Amino acid sequence: MSLELNKAFAAILTAGIAFMGAGIVGEQIVHPKRLATPAIQVGEPAPAQQAAAPAAPTIEPIAPLLAAANADNGRTLATRACGSCHTFNEGGRSGVGPNLYGIVGASHAHIPGFNYSNAMRALADKPWDYEALNQFLAAPARAIAGTRMAFAGLNNTGQRADVIAYLRTLAAEPAPLP
């Protein structure tokens, strides 16, 4: 049985070496070159268009939605979407991301000793208000360029409102609604 297995591996290895050798010889024989301009021109050449930079999508303000937001739905969403990296309990340890207890109203880099990205540390003097959380939860990398958070974001404004309403409850004294 062992000899048959060795023969099979040798056949695969030999075929791979043969194909690699054929590729190298083929590149030496044929030198494909791309044309700088099309060989056949039909009609007038199209004018060169400058690509417009895509405008950053506008994010709907969250303040009007917070009064009707459902913190229980937010807990479910946050546990599912954020729970693998963050903890939510008072005094909880930080994981890949910082503990989020008391995040609403706290400064951006508020947990001492946590290894925040330079981009997050640069915003340490700014608080996590409702709109800052809304922008960050919509698209973390767009809200804070250079963040280490590898979360794509929540596109649904209602879901963001629910998560923010839940995060608001994570405090001894929740921050007042706007």
Rank of each mutant, 00 (worst) to 15 (best):
residue 53 A to W: 01
residue 54 P to L: 13
residue 55 A to Y: 08
residue 55 A to P: 06
residue 56 A to L: 08
residue 56 A to N: 03
residue 57 P to L: 09
residue 57 P to R: 09
residue 58 T to A: 15
residue 58 T to N: 06
residue 59 I to H: 01
residue 61 P to W: 06
residue 65 L to V: 01
residue 66 L to V: 13
residue 68 A to W: 08
residue 68 A to E: 10
residue 68 A to R: 11
residue 68 A to T: 05
residue 70 N to R: 03
residue 71 A to Q: 07
residue 71 A to V: 09
residue 72 D to G: 03
residue 72 D to I: 11
residue 72 D to E: 15
residue 73 N to D: 10
residue 73 N to F: 00
residue 73 N to I: 00
residue 73 N to E: 06
residue 75 R to L: 13
residue 76 T to H: 05
residue 76 T to K: 05
residue 76 T to V: 10
residue 76 T to M: 04
residue 78 A to Y: 01
residue 80 R to N: 14
residue 80 R to L: 14
residue 82 C to H: 01
residue 82 C to L: 07
residue 82 C to A: 01
residue 82 C to P: 00
residue 83 G to Y: 09
residue 84 S to Y: 02
residue 85 C to W: 02
residue 87 T to N: 10
residue 87 T to L: 05
residue 88 F to E: 07
residue 88 F to L: 07
residue 88 F to A: 08
residue 88 F to R: 07
residue 89 N to M: 09
residue 90 E to A: 14
residue 90 E to I: 12
residue 91 G to Q: 10
residue 91 G to L: 08
residue 92 G to V: 04
residue 94 S to P: 14
residue 96 V to D: 02
residue 96 V to F: 09
residue 96 V to S: 08
residue 97 G to L: 01
residue 97 G to E: 01
residue 97 G to I: 04
residue 98 P to E: 04
residue 99 N to A: 10
residue 99 N to D: 14
residue 101 Y to D: 09
residue 101 Y to L: 15
residue 101 Y to Q: 11
residue 103 I to L: 04
residue 103 I to T: 02
residue 104 V to Q: 04
residue 106 A to I: 05
residue 107 S to W: 04
residue 107 S to L: 15
residue 109 A to R: 07
residue 110 H to T: 01
residue 110 H to N: 14
residue 111 I to L: 05
residue 111 I to Y: 00
residue 111 I to H: 02
residue 112 P to L: 14
residue 112 P to Q: 08
residue 112 P to R: 14
residue 113 G to K: 05
residue 113 G to H: 06
residue 113 G to N: 07
residue 114 F to G: 07
residue 115 N to E: 07
residue 115 N to T: 06
residue 116 Y to D: 04
residue 116 Y to Q: 01
residue 117 S to C: 09
residue 117 S to T: 12
residue 117 S to W: 15
residue 118 N to I: 10
residue 119 A to N: 12
residue 119 A to V: 02
residue 120 M to H: 00
residue 120 M to L: 11
residue 122 A to W: 10
residue 122 A to Q: 13
residue 122 A to M: 14
residue 122 A to T: 13
residue 124 A to N: 11
residue 124 A to Y: 04
residue 124 A to I: 04
residue 124 A to T: 06
residue 124 A to K: 10
residue 125 D to V: 14
residue 125 D to A: 12
residue 125 D to L: 08
residue 125 D to C: 06
residue 126 K to V: 04
residue 127 P to W: 06
residue 127 P to Y: 12
residue 128 W to Q: 05
residue 128 W to M: 08
residue 129 D to I: 12
residue 129 D to F: 06
residue 130 Y to F: 14
residue 130 Y to T: 01
residue 130 Y to M: 03
residue 131 E to A: 15
residue 132 A to H: 15
residue 132 A to G: 14
residue 132 A to W: 10
residue 133 L to V: 07
residue 134 N to D: 15
residue 134 N to M: 00
residue 136 F to W: 12
residue 136 F to G: 00
residue 136 F to M: 11
residue 137 L to F: 07
residue 137 L to D: 00
residue 138 A to K: 03
residue 139 A to Q: 15
residue 139 A to P: 02
residue 140 P to M: 04
residue 141 A to L: 08
residue 142 R to D: 11
residue 143 A to W: 03
residue 143 A to N: 13
residue 143 A to I: 12
residue 144 I to Y: 01
residue 144 I to A: 01
residue 145 A to E: 08
residue 145 A to Q: 15
residue 145 A to F: 10
residue 147 T to D: 13
residue 148 R to C: 02
residue 148 R to I: 13
residue 148 R to V: 06
residue 148 R to M: 11
residue 150 A to T: 13
residue 153 G to T: 09
residue 153 G to M: 07
residue 153 G to Q: 09
